[in-house]
Design a protein around this nucleic acid. Structure first.
Length: 303
DNA sequence: ATTCCGATGGAGGACGACCG
DNA sequence: CGGTCGTCCTCCATCGGAAT
């Protein structure tokens, strides 16, 4: 949230003008602090930026620009509601596109509202696999192709990952199963596969400590020294250049945590799983994961 | 010596009135 | 219609005196 002063600096619109636009045309309706100070959301700022562009570059009067903005927003809402109708695959596509576009424009509130809407309609599992994961893949591809900026890629990944973590807590934890540590080593920035695998483990009742992408070695070691029950350590890498580093890291971690099993996965190991000395090498397709899980943890499951 | 508390003043925000 | 002015209000840092 931004104060009026910050918005003035960001947009170069005088504070008196911002207040006049609000009072006369309800251009935006910022929240207020207890003492009545305005608090502008990111969406408010983007709306104001759009209004400024219309008045300065298109020569539109502020009152007309506000009417245009409201019409635009109503259309967006209509599009959202129409997602609920029509065939399901189209609906996923439409929702994916809208959430992606909202995040691309840094409209976090709108994206979250759409995700909430999707979760209420389809449930978390379908939303993950049909909408959120494809968005993560799409933004990664867009970044590699130079269509999305680093900021857009980071923002989108961050927002979606946050939703993943929130839903992690929905699943029960079975205390007889070992605790899992999941991370991508330093230098590896792609965490989509790891996130999905962590979700899979959480669904099966395992407690997962998820450290995410690009995790430095010191962090992992100090974390393992604090956590006693870690029985499975999962690493994911997509970059083949990182294989030797990753294998050496596993050897070092085995010394810190001798009782733990190691699991590696990710595109880097897809071609040749024998490159790893880990206890398990997990590759696509994800349908095989359940068979592996049942095989390894069935004995532990019988409570 | 340290902590607490009320008084004071400057900076900045809210809002109605005003002006071109 | 849309930007600006003037006044009042709130916040917050600072200071000095009282209490511990």
């Amino acid at each position: 949230m931004y104060s009026i002063k910050q918005v003035v600096e960001m947009l170069d619109i005088p504070s008196v003008t911002l207040r006049a636009w609000e009072n006369r045309y309800q251009a935006v309706t910022p929240e207020r602090t207890e003492s009545g100070y305005r608090l502008y959301s990111h969406e408010n700022v983007e709306d104001l930026r759009w209004l400024k562009e219309q008045t300065e570059q298109q020569g539109v009067s502020i009152s007309h620009a506000v009417r245009m903005l409201k019409a635009r927003k109503e259309k967006q809402l209509d599009d959202t509601l129409s997602v609920a109708s029509g065939n399901t695959q189209d609906a996923f596509e439409k929702m994916k596109e809208q959430i992606y576009n909202a995040l691309h424009d840094f409209q976090g509130e709108r994206a979250n509202a759409l995700i909430d809407f999707g979760l209420s309609l389809y449930g978390y599992e379908v939303m993950f696999h049909q909408v959120l994961v494809p968005i993560l893949i799409q933004v990664g591809d867009a970044w590699e192709a130079g269509i999305a900026t680093v900021a857009q890629e980071h923002y989108t990944t961050h927002m979606i990952s946050n939703r993943f973590y929130q839903i992690f807590h929905v699943f029960p934890v079975y205390s007889h199963l070992p605790k899992v540590l999941a991370f991508c080593p330093a230098g590896e920035h792609h965490q989509v596969g790891l996130l999905l695998f962590a979700l899979f483990l959480r669904k099966n009742g395992m407690e997962v400590i998820y450290l995410g992408a690009n995790t430095p070695e010191e962090g992992i070691i100090s974390m393992l020294e604090q956590q006693s029950r870690v029985g499975l350590i999962c690493l994911s890498i997509t970059d083949k250049e990182l294989i030797s580093f990753s294998e050496e890291l596993i050897e070092r971690l085995r010394i810190v945590c001798p009782g733990a099993k190691f699991l590696v996965g990710g595109k880097a190991y897809e071609r040749d799983p024998s490159l790893s000395k880990a206890d398990y090498v997990m590759t696509e397709p994800a349908e095989h994961w359940q068979a592996w899980f049942d095989h390894v943890f069935t004995s532990m499951r019988s409570k």
